[in-house]
């Protein structure tokens, strides 16, 4: 159980360190012109936070379906040698099936900016 204790300690350490580092500098004069977002002298009309049109959203959907296969691949890798050719064939089939999805997505222009 200590195997996750050490990573957790490291996380706390790193976050505390970076926090402390950012407290080092002097206080900034926070005037409104100073806080305005940088646009090379121009000004935005609205807040930058918005219903952001992520142009690759179909790709992300394809991605989460495809990424699921990693869950199966790690245990597969562990028993690969002892299972032999059968494992190769099964995973080949599995990946083959999913590759059809990628090809289909490609044909439908999923990887382009929508």
């Amino acid at each position: 159980m200590t195997e996750i204790a050490m990573p957790l300690v490291l996380v706390l350490l790193a976050v505390a360190f970076a926090w402390g580092l950012q407290r080092l500098g002097p206080e900034a004069g926070a005037t409104w012109p100073h806080r305005a977002p940088f646009l090379g002298g121009g000004v935005p009309q609205t807040h930058a936070w918005q219903r952001w049109h992520a142009r690759y959203y179909p790709m992300t959907l394809l991605f989460i379906a495809f990424e699921m296969e990693m869950m199966f691949m790690y245990p597969w890798a562990v028993v690969y040698i002892e299972t032999g050719t059968k494992a190769l064939a099964e995973m080949g089939m599995f990946l083959g099936i999913l590759s059809v999805g990628i090809l289909y997505g490609w044909r439908e222009g999923v990887f382009r900016w929508q």
């Binding site: 959203y57 992300t60 959907l61 989460i64 379906a65 990424e67 699921m68």
Partner: peptide, 8 residues
């Protein structure tokens, strides 16, 4: 994963 992909 399926729920998310289809839901979105």
């Amino acid at each position: 994963a399926v729920e998310m992909a289809v839901g979105f």
